[in-house]
């Protein structure tokens, strides 16, 4: 008791100046000095920065791994609904308005070993977990092209892992296959370019010659996504041209035959 009170008075006599600090240091602090408060603030600030850094790293991990998982799950669900979708389309007639966000076709890129169910529409909501087909409202002329028809079958996708992340790896001549209710359409990449987001002509019926937009001669496929990765200043555009149409009765084309089991399993569910 005497000792503590002594120590207390000892501290008090030394004052709160910085001169006495070094000698006092080994003893446990009993009073909050200005230095303690300053250290507390600095420590709290440091901990906040440290926490913010951890959170951002964790979010980055989510963007890469978590979203891939979500995308896969969503794709599974879409695949289950795709066959029904095609049947309904037949019942309602080929000219009926597609339901936004519903499945439209299946897209295969054998060279990247990737495949997706493509949905109708390109709004943020539609293409959150899958590539989306540019519908009538999104293309000039107001009449979107169906897969395999003369014109431009345009598909947008996010530049996220699981969707169009590696799209820049495609080279001219690489094949892209679109499957709809009746046929497999094989396209070959003819051009890859980067444009600014306002160049909407890339999804026109004939992106190479605007004069043909009313009556397109070539059957094209266009993929659009963000460029560079995780940024949205530009758009990466892949143009491909139809080289082969194969009715479904004849089975899957050879170039995507190795992707078949998974597809059939998904379709059979």
């Amino acid at each position: 008791m005497v000792y503590t009170s002594e120590r207390h008075s000892h501290r008090g006599s030394r004052g709160r100046g910085s001169r006495g600090r070094r000698r006092r240091h080994p003893e446990p602090p009993r009073e909050r000095t200005g230095g303690d408060i300053a250290r507390g603030i600095v420590r709290g600030f440091g901990e906040l920065l440290f926490t913010a850094g951890l959170l951002m790293l964790f979010f980055a991990a989510y963007e890469v791994y978590g979203k891939q998982f979500e995308t896969d799950r969503e794709q599974d669900q879409l695949a289950q609904g795709l066959e029904d979708q095609w049947e309904q389309q037949e019942v309602r007639g080929p000219d009926s308005e597609p339901l936004p966000g519903s499945a439209n076709s299946r897209l295969y890129i054998p060279d990247l070993d990737l495949q997706w169910v493509v949905v109708n529409g390109v709004s943020q909501e539609d293409i959150r977990y899958s590539p989306g087909h540019y519908g009538d409202d999104a293309v000039s002329g107001g009449d979107a092209t169906a897969a395999g028809q003369p014109g431009n079958y345009a598909v947008a996708g996010h530049r996220t892992p699981g969707i169009f992340w590696d799209l820049d790896l495609l080279e001219n001549g690489d094949q892209i296959v679109v499957e709809d209710a009746e046929n497999f359409y094989t396209y070959e990449v003819i051009e890859e370019r980067t444009v600014t987001p306002d160049q909407v002509e890339v999804v026109d019926p004939d992106p190479f010659n605007a004069e043909n937009n009313e009556d397109p001669q070539r059957s094209l496929l266009t993929l659009t996504t963000c460029a560079p990765r995780l940024n949205n200043t530009h758009r990466l555009i892949i143009h491909a041209e139809l080289t082969d149409t194969r009715p479904k009765d004849e089975g899957m084309p050879e170039n995507i035959a190795d992707m078949a089991p998974e597809t059939q399993a998904a379709a059979g569910e």
Partner: peptide, 26 residues
């Protein structure tokens, strides 16, 4: 909590996802 609730909720508002396509609201 972050992984399953917070991150999926804030993800659509991230700038690097928005506008993946050139047609606004299309």
């Amino acid at each position: 909590g972050l992984w399953f609730y917070v991150f999926p909720a804030i993800d659509p508002y991230m700038p690097f996802n928005d506008g993946a396509v050139e047609v606004e609201g299309g």
